[in-house]
Simulated scan of single mutants.
Amino acid sequence: MPISPNQGSSGGGTLVTITGTGLSGTTAVRFGTRSATAVTNVSPTQVTAISPSGNGAVGVTVTTPGGTSNPIPFYYVGAPFKQSLSPTSGSTAGGGTVTINGTGLSTATSVAFGANSAVPTVVSDGQITVAAPAGAAGSVGVSVTTAGGTNNGLSYTYVAAPTVTTVTPAEGPTTGGTTVTVAGTGLTSTTAVTFGGAPAPFTVISDTAVSAVTPPGTAGAVDVVVTNDAGSATAVGAFTYVAGPGI
């Protein structure tokens, strides 16, 4: 006499279907010593019921006018507990792999990033991985759903890929040291600014502006690249290094 599903939340509330024979006139379904609710005799071979609360493994029995069946196992599962996720941010385009660590994750069926959900891959009871779905820029709550329930408590930040519109001033000495304002969008989470591939110290002013100090470089035009967690933006030949005068 199979039962489906054969596991559910320790808080109860799982709708289970029991299949067998001689089930007409079912008067009770019990999970261990506790009675199920909303018992419905669907047919002579099928009964549905909602599990009561419980813990661990219990035997499920069906009682009819003809007697009580042998028990079949049902496993109570606690709600998942999430400890951490990594990385904590990624592109609004989604697709980045996020690792979630915690306990009770072996039956995870869904991970929601705000209003958008994705199906995870179970690594172990303590870890799952999931490809972040696409989302709008900003922070969203992350919830994991398992046979034991749903747990919230972590957040993930969607980051828009940067753009660069202007670099001001557009030239400076090869010795470096020029303070430059890079204007664009998606600059709040800037992680790096380079001039001709050389890293520059920078300060985020706003989502549309970053201040950087040029490193030393070779005379000529170089690309200015701004990078954040979602990707990079390249302003081709946007800054020109000018050699000092020679006498």
Results as ranks from 00 to 15, higher is better:
N55A: 03
N70I: 05
A79M: 03
I72P: 09
T168M: 14
V167T: 10
G8C: 11
Y158F: 06
P173D: 07
G141W: 01
G102H: 02
V193T: 11
E171K: 02
G138W: 15
N41Y: 14
Y76L: 01
G90V: 08
I18M: 12
V111K: 08
G138F: 13
A118K: 08
G54A: 01
S211M: 12
L15S: 08
T163M: 05
V164A: 10
V225D: 13
P215C: 08
G126T: 09
S124K: 13
T97G: 00
I247F: 13
V144N: 00
V204F: 09
G104H: 00
L23M: 04
G138Y: 11
P80W: 01
T175Y: 11
F31I: 00
T21N: 14
T99H: 01
G246Y: 13
V130P: 12
Y158V: 02
A243M: 07
G102V: 02
F239I: 13
P162T: 10
D223V: 13
F113P: 04
V236R: 11
A79H: 02
V182T: 05
T157Q: 10
S69K: 03
A233L: 11
P71Y: 00
G141T: 06
V213T: 11
V210I: 12
T181E: 14
G186R: 05
G11C: 00
F74K: 14
A112P: 09
N55T: 04
F202S: 06
S84N: 08
P87M: 01
A112Y: 07
A212Q: 03
T145Q: 04
N6Y: 06
T227H: 09
G22R: 03
G12R: 03
Y75M: 02
I3N: 15
Q83M: 02
P169T: 10
T175L: 07
N228W: 12
T146M: 00
G95K: 14
V142I: 06
T103A: 05
G138C: 13
T165G: 02
G95Y: 15
V47L: 05
G12C: 02
T48Y: 06
G90Y: 15
G114C: 14
A212G: 09
A219N: 10
A115V: 09
G186L: 03
I3V: 14
T45A: 13
F113V: 02
S206T: 13
T218A: 15
T68N: 13
T191Q: 11
G20K: 06
T45Q: 15
G126P: 09
V16L: 05
T175F: 11
P133N: 15
S10K: 00
N55W: 01
F202Q: 04
G66N: 07
T88Q: 06
T21K: 14
G244A: 14
T27G: 08
A230V: 09
A115C: 08
Y75V: 01
V222N: 10
G244L: 08
P245G: 12
G197F: 10
N101D: 03
Y158S: 02
T166Q: 09
R34P: 07
Y75S: 01
N70V: 05
F74I: 10
S91C: 09
A209D: 07
T48A: 10
V111A: 07
G217L: 04
S43D: 10
S206L: 08
V98N: 02
N116V: 15
Y76C: 01
G141R: 03
